[in-house]
């Protein structure tokens, strides 16, 4: 039986304290109801636990966390998955700015749109590869300074049909990782020096496996997603600013 918590009357600090106490007692499943702007939920929690959240968590959901799998029936505010290390955040609504900033591992699946500066400075090392999948559209600076990891942008479940799939400065300064986009972007949206590429068979296999998990999370049909072609954006060098200096 999961631990059910009605958190409306509590400050975020108390909620986290309760969660931590129960984790130390061996509780592994949580259901949080009445979440309304509570910040930092599960921040820094290092445990293989799962949580279902009803409502809208505040700033930095799951920041620095290592392990928890959090499903949010609602939207999330800025900073969800900030520097997260391992685990998963599944959001059935939209997400704010700077989602997955400097993410080191784990997955973030967003059903709808995301704000600005998402996936900035994501990292990767060996088999530790963070993944962000966005069902809707993204604002400016998606994947800026990316050093590793994968961002997949679908542009499907959006409340902004009139907007382009991504904003400007897409992948500016990226020196590792890859961004996959369903459909096309104009070249002037891309960061300096970047170009869109067609997918090869390895990309397609990889994409399919990540998208399959995404579809399972939201009950979507993968064939619908794969109906349109994807493009790939990768760094043109691992040292975009290497020639910047005179010694």
């Amino acid at each position: 039986m999961p631990l059910e918590l009605e958190v409306t009357p509590f400050h975020y600090s108390q909620v986290n304290k309760i969660i931590r106490e129960h984790i130390s007692k061996g509780e592994r499943e949580f259901v949080l109801r009445g979440v309304n702007g509570h910040r930092y939920l599960f921040a820094g929690v290092s445990a293989e636990v799962s949580a279902v959240i009803y409502g809208t968590p505040g700033l930095d959901l799951g920041a620095f966390m290592r392990g928890p799998v959090i499903r949010v029936f609602g939207s999330v505010q800025d900073g969800a998955g900030n520097t997260m290390d391992h685990g998963k955040i599944i959001v059935h609504g939209m997400a704010g700015d700077v989602i997955g900033y400097a993410m080191r591992g784990g997955k973030i699946h967003i059903f709808g749109d995301v704000g600005y500066r998402v996936g900035i400075h994501m990292k990767a090392y060996m088999d530790k590869v963070p993944v962000i999948i966005i069902g809707g559209k993204a604002g400016d600076f998606l994947g800026e300074y990316m050093a590793g990891g994968i961002i997949i942008l679908l542009g499907m479940n959006t409340i902004y049909p009139e907007r382009p799939i991504a904003g400007l400065f897409l992948g500016t300064g990226m020196h590792g990782g890859a961004i996959y986009i369903r459909g096309k972007v104009r070249e002037n949206q891309l960061g300096l020096g970047l170009k869109p590429y067609a997918l090869d068979s390895d990309d397609e296999k990889l994409l399919e496996s990540y998208l399959k998990e995404y579809c399972d999370d939201f009950g979507l049909d993968i064939s619908e997603i794969l109906k349109e072609d994807f493009i790939k954006i990768i760094p043109y060098t691992h040292r975009p600013y290497g020639k910047l200096y005179a010694y």
């Binding site: 080191r104 990292k123 800026e144 590792g176 600013y241 290497g242």
Partner: peptide
């Protein structure tokens, strides 16, 4: 390894 960025790439802090 500690910084989680490719070998030989500049470690850029925004």
């Amino acid at each position: 390894k500690t910084r989680m960025i490719p070998v030989g790439s500049d470690a850029l802090s925004p």
